[in-house]
């Protein structure tokens, strides 16, 4: 009967029994972020960019909000002043990178295949295709998507979210996670405000504040140039800040 009650188990042979028991287990406390590997890669990107004194901005929005058009207008406005490079994220095609290269700016296209967002590893690979010594400002156009890009740190210094006038002013309330991650919110295609009178820019700001975010909410139009001066000023200030940091680090 001893094989049933366990009275033959001693300190010397207990491990034999335990090893053969399907129930033997160990619980390990982890308390690590699910995205720890991505976050490590993002920190690596940030250090890499800092070493070269490159300021990086992550642009996020829904597809068709005018990210590429804003980049084109920005490149034109800052031509001869800041050396810009662009990383383009899309599921497929080189179309956006070709639009940027046509403006004389180096652009790396990341085709994510089926992935709905950029991650730090993809951006890391793209960084190695660029001559960072010849870049002041890196603009990263994330995959058009208001959900997933928010979860992945790329190693950028600032994040910008765009909401275009045709989309409606309630986007920040509908996609709180992404808009909460933005350091600046741009209301793009603001030249359409006169046509689409249902859009209230003040409502965008109210929704952003409800996310406990102090991010400025500014209007821009790549078509008319409205707001580009302020946006470019913001980019200049960021480049100066990152340059100063890089200079301080090498002293």
């Amino acid at each position: 009967m001893c094989e049933h009650c366990g009275c033959t188990v001693t300190g010397g042979n207990a491990h034999l029994l335990e090893a053969g028991t399907p129930g033997a287990s160990r619980t390990v406390e982890v308390l690590e972020g699910l995205l720890a590997a991505n976050d490590r890669a993002a920190a690596h990107n940030r250090a890499h960019l800092a070493r070269h004194g490159v300021a990086a901005v992550n642009l996020m929005s829904a597809p068709g909000s005018g990210k590429t058009a804003l980049l084109e207008a920005t490149i034109e406005a800052l031509a001869g002043e800041l050396r810009i490079a662009v990383v383009e994220g899309d599921l497929a095609t080189e179309k956006d990178a070709e639009r940027i290269r046509a403006r004389g700016v180096p652009a790396v296209q990341i085709a994510t295949g089926t992935a709905c967002h950029l991650d730090a590893h993809l951006v890391h690979r793209a960084l190695h295709e660029l001559d960072l010594a010849a870049v002041d400002l890196l603009l990263i156009e994330n995959v058009g998507n208001l959900v997933c890009p928010a979860a992945f740190d790329l190693g950028q210094h600032r994040s910008v979210a765009l909401v275009s006038v045709p989309e409606g002013d309630d986007k920040p309330a509908k996609y709180p996670v992404l808009f909460r991650a933005a350091d600046l919110v741009l209301v793009s295609k603001c030249d359409l405000l006169g046509v689409l009178d249902g859009f209230d820019p003040a409502a965008v700001e109210r929704h952003v504040r409800a996310l406990a975010s102090a991010a400025p909410v500014w209007r821009v139009s790549a078509r008319t140039g409205e707001g580009l001066g302020r946006w470019c000023g913001w980019l200049r200030a960021l480049v100066a800040e990152v340059h100063a940091g890089a200079a301080a680090a090498t002293r």
Partner: peptide, 23 residues
């Protein structure tokens, strides 16, 4: 939060310690 709090492992043969610990 987006955290892994803990995992429960099935011990390989010959392993015999139990209980919780930190990695």
């Amino acid at each position: 939060e987006l955290l892994i709090e803990r995992v429960e492992l099935a011990l390989a043969p010959r392993a015999r310690e139990g209980g919780a610990e930190h990695v």
